[in-house]
Simulated scan of single mutants.
Amino acid sequence: MDLVRPENLEGLFGGAYKKLPNDAERAKMALAAISRLLPIWMAGLPLNKLEAEFLEDSANLGQCEYARHFVLRLVPDLAFVAGLPARLLAARAKKSGKEPQLATVLATLGSAVREGCDSPEALATRINCGRAVSRVGARKVFERLRKFASAGNPTESFEITRDRMRSAEVAAAFAAL
């Protein structure tokens, strides 16, 4: 939890978090919530689902204050942390004079967390759709396209992944005719 800004965690959990006696207890509280919320975010579900999971009640969701705080404050920190292994491995390979050969999943993990996608293919679809399509809408497009996508190479470049998803979109359009 040292790589997540404390003020972002305090903002999400409020006074109860600040009153905990030590960092270990605060980390335990934060990790429990993050482990529940992050998979929902990355599955492309809407904010009201995040809010309901955080509050453990779907009766009074309001403006999804906690979900918005999670997405706007914690997700960027988590995306940074998720992107570190790829950066470190790439730097190590460059230092030794080798071309980095990273798994696509690892190479795109930081961006996938930031964009709320659970696979390189979902991320490619999100990016291919553009900003005019919501994250939830892009997820629906991905779910429609995934059966048309060809299998990829585990270490393919992300541009190849994007091309595979573009091809899946063409195949889906022909199948709809």
Rank of each mutant, 00 (worst) to 15 (best):
T155N: 14
L37H: 04
S35C: 08
L37F: 05
K19N: 12
V105T: 13
R73F: 13
T108G: 08
A33W: 10
A24T: 11
F148Q: 02
L12F: 13
K140I: 08
K94P: 00
F174N: 10
S134W: 08
E65K: 15
R139V: 00
V141M: 09
L145P: 00
E99D: 12
A79R: 04
W41Q: 00
P85K: 10
K49V: 01
K94Y: 10
L102H: 11
L74A: 07
P120L: 03
A67D: 02
V113F: 04
A176M: 09
F158R: 07
E10T: 14
P46N: 00
L45P: 00
R164I: 08
G14L: 09
F158T: 08
V133Q: 03
L45Q: 10
I40V: 06
M1V: 15
G15C: 02
A52Y: 04
P76Y: 01
A124L: 01
A93R: 13
L177V: 14
V4D: 12
T104D: 06
A138P: 02
D23H: 09
N8G: 15
P120I: 03
D118M: 07
L74R: 06
A151L: 14
T155E: 11
F142V: 05
M1Q: 14
T161G: 05
E121Q: 11
T125P: 02
V170G: 05
N22A: 06
N128G: 00
T125K: 05
L37T: 04
K94D: 10
L20F: 04
H69T: 11
D118P: 00
R144D: 11
E56R: 13
D118C: 06
A59N: 08
L37C: 03
A27I: 09
M42H: 01
K19R: 12
K49I: 00
I40C: 00
A122N: 05
E121R: 08
P6K: 13
F80L: 10
D118T: 01
E7N: 13
K94H: 12
N128D: 04
G44R: 06
A33T: 12
P100S: 09
G130E: 01
V170F: 14
A90S: 15
S150V: 10
A172M: 07
D57F: 03
K147V: 12
V75L: 02
R164F: 07
R162T: 06
F70P: 06
R144H: 13
A112R: 15
K94Q: 14
A173D: 06
P154I: 09
L88I: 15
D2K: 15
R26S: 02
F174L: 15
I160Y: 09
W41P: 00
A30E: 07
P120T: 04
E156V: 10
K19C: 05
L45S: 07
V113L: 03
L89I: 10
C129I: 02
I40G: 00
E53C: 07
S119E: 01
E99L: 13
R162E: 10
V170S: 09
G130P: 00
D163S: 13
H69F: 11
A122W: 04
G83M: 11
A90F: 12
D163N: 13
V170Y: 13
K94R: 15
R68N: 11
R166W: 06
Y66G: 11
R5S: 12
A67P: 05
L47R: 05
L123C: 05
F158C: 09
A151H: 08
A103P: 05
R131D: 12
K147F: 08
A67R: 02
